[in-house]
Each structure stands twice: as structure tokens, then as C-alpha cells.
């Protein structure tokens, strides 16, 4: 009998209705938002509603360190309406600053995306999340969407796929990773785009050798969101869930539940 990641995830819900990053920890915005999407969990949405700040954002980290990277996921998790709209408003208003070019880590200094924390410059996974949320919830946000796509195009590794942010450091090309490449492909969701085509070549090359819960789950989600099929990838993910329950990591379990189940529709960009 295969293990249902949804059931395992549900068992990790905290009494306050939110979800922890890992079993036994306090609830946090990112795992709660992903679990709310994966399980269509009203209590998780309630927790998010209570965690939302007046400015619309979801902050993890105090004072000088404002990690607001869960905000796009929370916007996607919340029911359509005021709270979700305010989260998107926050997202549009809080993009990362640009950074001057530097030959040590070449990039286009004109590109803008989102960072892990406020006041750091744009990185692949936060930018892909922001792009995903805008394309699903506010496709009219033209400039921010265009900028995010430009950033992802600029940071593409040589040969395709994505590392965390840089494509080259000190003259050395960086390798693409499965998980970050999957994040970018979820944000882009355009199977005709050469970036996406090259990205899936990287996914196909990496996933058989990168048997980790987060990477496989996000890779399968990226496959489905781009209208593709990789049955063996789904089998590999289910097998890993059966064997390890993804170490009770709520973010990994949520992505597995999304990738293997019907809730992925909530992340689909309508064209």
C-alpha cells in the first residue's frame, strides 16, 4: 500500500492549525502555505490569515532581517479576496534591489527579481516563486513579470538549468541543480520557451541521480505544470515517500502531495 504524502503531512499539523518546517517545530508561513495548497486545509489558511502583517507580507525573521520569501506562496494558498490581494500588493512593492555588475560573478545588472530576505538581491528560487504567484493571480503585473523572466534568463547556467543565482563565479561555471531548476520551470510555465526546453533537458539528466524528496517533488510538479509527463519520475518519488516519508520535512511532503495530487491545478498559469 503506497504511503499517501497528504495523510503524512496532515498528521504533522500543529494544534494552532499551522504547519512546522519539520515535525515538532513551531508553525511557519512557508510550510503552512504549501500545506494549505496541498491539502486545501482551511485551518492552515486561518493560520496564514492570522500571520499576515498589516503590509500584506509574511515575515520570518525580525528587525533588520526580514525574510518575506513565503509571501507569494501564502498569496497562492489564501482564498481569493482581500488577504491574497494584499499579499500580491506586497510582493509587487517589495522586489529586490539591483546590483551593479561585477566580473567575479557576471550578471545583467538591470534585472530585478526577489531575494530571500529584504535588501538582498534577486535569486532564482524567490524570483521563480514571485513569478509564479503573479502569473497565476495577477497576470496584469506586466513589468514585474517581465523583469522576473529576464532575471531567470540571465541567470541560466551554461547549457541550461539553474544554480541558486549565479551562473559563474570567479571564472568557473556553476552547475545546475534539480531543485532550483524545477523552481524556475514552475515559475516560467511556458513549454515553448527555449529556456524551459533546456531546463527539462537538465531535469531529465539530473533526477535519476538526485534522489531527494524536495528535488524529486518539485521536479515532478514542474513537469506537470508545463504539461509534460515523466511517469518514471512519479514512480521514483512515490517510492521515496514509501521508504522515507521524506524525513517528515513538511515542505518536501507538501510538494510531493502537490506533485502527485490534484491540488497542482492551483499553481497552473492560464494562457
Amino acid at each position: 500500500m503506497p504511503t499517501d504524502p497528504r495523510a503524512r503531512l496532515r498528521s504533522l499539523r500543529n494544534p494552532d492549525g499551522g504547519y512546522p518546517p519539520v515535525a515538532g517545530a513551531p508553525s511557519e508561513p512557508e510550510p503552512t502555505a504549501l500545506a494549505a495548497i496541498a491539502l486545501d486545509d482551511g485551518s492552515a489558511r486561518d493560520w496564514l490569515g492570522n500571520a499576515q502583517r498589516h503590509d500584506g507580507g509574511f515575515i520570518l525573521g525580525p528587525d533588520a532581517l526580514r525574510n518575506d520569501v513565503a509571501t507569494p506562496l501564502a498569496a497562492l494558498a489564501l482564498a481569493p479576496g482581500s488577504a491574497s490581494d494584499r499579499a500580491i500588493d506586497y510582493l509587487v512593492a517589495h522586489r529586490a534591489p539591483t546590483l551593479g555588475n561585477d566580473p567575479r560573478f557576471p550578471h545583467d545588472p538591470a534585472t530585478r527579481g526577489w531575494g530571500w530576505t529584504s535588501k538582498t538581491f534577486g535569486w532564482v528560487e524567490p524570483t521563480a516563486r514571485g513569478l509564479l504567484a503573479l502569473q497565476v493571480l495577477r497576470p496584469a503585473a506586466g513589468e514585474a513579470i517581465t523583469d522576473a523572466k529576464r532575471l531567470l534568463a540571465d541567470r541560466e547556467c551554461s547549457g541550461g538549468g539553474w544554480n541558486y543565482g549565479n551562473r559563474q563565479v570567479l571564472g568557473t561555471n556553476l552547475e545546475p541543480y534539480l531543485q532550483t531548476t524545477a523552481a524556475a520551470l514552475m515559475g516560467l510555465q511556458d513549454p515553448s520557451d527555449q529556456l524551459v526546453i533546456r531546463g527539462f533537458e537538465v531535469i531529465d539528466r539530473l533526477w535519476p541521480n538526485e534522489q531527494g524528496g524536495l528535488g524529486l517533488s518539485m521536479a515532478l510538479a514542474a513537469v506537470r505544470l508545463n504539461g509534460q509527463e515523466r511517469p518514471k519520475l512519479g514512480v521514483a518519488l512515490q517510492s521515496l515517500v514509501d521508504r522515507t516519508e521524506l524525513l517528515d520535512d513538511c515542505v518536501s511532503l507538501s510538494w510531493a502531495a502537490i506533485a502527485l495530487g490534484p491540488s497542482i491545478q492551483k499553481l497552473r498559469v492560464n494562457r
Binding site: 513551531p26 524536495l214 522515507t244
Partner: peptide, 30 residues
């Protein structure tokens, strides 16, 4: 970010299982 990939592919999780010792992912711990 995929700690499970690093810890399992490197063989660390299996070896720790053999010595009955837990692995904690500090990226997600409380």
C-alpha cells in the same frame, strides 16, 4: 536545499543508521 539528497547520496544516513544515531537537518530545525 534538498538535504535528503545530500545526506542519503553521500551514504551518511545509512552509516548513521548502523550506529543508531539520528541526523538532524539544521536548515529546518526549530
Amino acid at each position: 536545499r534538498d538535504t535528503q539528497y545530500v545526506a542519503s547520496s553521500s551514504g551518511l544516513l545509512d552509516l548513521l543508521h548502523d550506529v543508531d544515531t539520528p541526523f538532524v537537518d539544521l536548515n529546518v530545525a526549530a
